[in-house]
């Protein structure tokens, strides 16, 4: 069950998106979030959707994996779009009891839905095509200037990459512990809130104990493999900003410009 989730998984490949410098990908991703929340009309929305479609196709990841990643947010999408649908102001197109649908509500629902879906697809695209190590490497490099103010850039990146590595392991472990406690008659499905929270103790304590034990083991293993902090470390996978990455950044800049232009000319809002 836990393993079925494809969000956050990495699919090795050689597509254009795979080969982009992870730093470029990270920057584009940040820009993309900004774009998404700056789309104020349908023209701008069309531009971002087209841009999203472009990199999804270029990633050469089968679409079924993208669909699966959407499953995770389906409830949020339905919930927020319904909320927006019924809470628009303006002239009612349809009304029943307390429910009112307005043209503005429909518009807002569409925007919210498309935004969430696009955001989910983009973040899936990032994790599908970029290994966690590449991602944390990129983060480390991008944050390097912060070292000047003694910000522990390497340590944070290393912690993130270890956390990403151990998420599936800990999920599996949680599952095992839950089964074991259920076998001892632990009741997690019934009772009021207090009872349910209490029922978590037999799961959380073993999980913490095991996480600490693992952390100790991992530290030992890292030391055995000559780890001594970030100084003097090299990387197997070198990251280079090449013409390809610059082009990708330029394309993203153009999309931002396009969105802004749409906003200005169609609705007059910036």
């Amino acid at each position: 069950m836990v393993r079925d989730v494809s969000f956050g998984q990495y699919f090795p490949g050689k597509s254009l998106i795979h080969r982009l410098d992870p730093r470029a990908k990270l920057l584009i991703f940040i820009a993309y979030i900004v774009i998404i929340f700056c789309t104020f009309n349908f023209a701008a929305l069309a531009v971002t959707t087209a841009f999203t479609a472009l990199f999804l196709v270029l990633s050469k990841i089968p679409f079924k994996f993208y669909f699966k990643s959407l499953k995770v947010v389906i409830f949020i999408v339905i919930f927020t779009s319904l909320l927006n649908l019924f809470y628009g102001s303006g002239e009612a197109l349809w009304q029943w009891w307390i429910f009112r649908i307005t043209w503005e509500g429909i518009q807002r629902a569409i925007f919210v839905t498309v935004r969430i879906i696009c955001l989910m697809l983009a973040s899936s695209c990032l994790t599908f095509t970029t290994s966690p190590t590449e991602l944390t490497d990129a983060l480390e490099r991008l944050m390097r200037p912060l070292k000047v103010i003694h910000f522990p850039v390497h340590e944070i990146a290393m912690m993130m990459s270890l956390a990403l590595r151990f998420v599936p392991t800990l999920l599996e472990e949680t599952d095992k512990i839950m089964q074991a406690q259920k076998a001892r008659g632990a009741d997690m499905e019934s009772g009021n809130l207090v009872k349910r929270v209490k029922a978590l103790i037999p799961i959380l304590i073993p999980l913490f104990v095991s996480a600490f034990r693992r952390a100790y083991d991992v530290a030992t293993a890292m030391e055995c493999r000559c780890y001594r902090g970030g100084a003097g470390r090299t990387r197997m996978k070198q990251i280079h900003m090449g013409p390809r990455d610059v082009s990708a950044l330029v394309v993203t800049a153009l999309v931002i410009a396009g969105v802004i232009l749409c906003n200005i000319f169609v609705t007059g809002v910036f």
Binding site: E173, K176, I177, Q179, A180, Q181, A183, R184, G185, A186, D187, I201, P202, I205, P206, V209, S210
Partner: peptide, 24 residues
């Protein structure tokens, strides 16, 4: 289960052994 020691959680061994029968 395999490696069942990972299911221990109580303050004392006695209390931990109690967990199952108490649930019963």
């Amino acid at each position: 289960f395999q490696y069942p020691e990972y299911q221990l959680f109580e303050e004392t061994v006695y209390k931990d052994i109690c967990f199952g029968p108490q649930n019963r």
